[in-house]
């Protein structure tokens, strides 16, 4: 791990991968248990396992770049 904080990567047409160290909490501050050191967070909104990715974006043909979208003209 090159940086000390968490590293978050939007993967092309896929989820946000979060590489530690991080803590995942809900809006009431309760910790959401994570099993892996790296997690994939849903970016398409269609996962049945939110906030985690379950791969459904592929079935839906959801598209998004990895790089940030340019601001509207």
């Amino acid at each position: 791990m090159s940086s000390e904080g968490a590293r978050i990567t939007p993967y092309r047409d896929g989820p946000l991968l979060v590489r530690g160290p991080f803590t995942l909490v809900d809006q009431d501050g309760a910790e959401i248990e994570v099993q892996q050191r790296t997690i994939a967070l849903c970016r398409c909104g269609r996962s049945r396992r939110k906030p985690f990715c379950d791969g459904t974006h592929k079935v839906a043909g959801w598209k998004a770049d990895s790089a940030a979208a340019p601001p509207p003209a």
């Binding site: 092309r12 896929g14 989820p15 099993q35 790296t38 994939a40 985690f52 990715c53 791969g55």
Partner: peptide, 16 residues
């Protein structure tokens, strides 16, 4: 169940 979420991570790590 484990493979649903684990491989949603792995597929990106493995492919990219």
């Amino acid at each position: 169940d484990e493979h649903v979420t684990a491989d949603a991570i792995h597929e990106n790590v493995a492919a990219v």
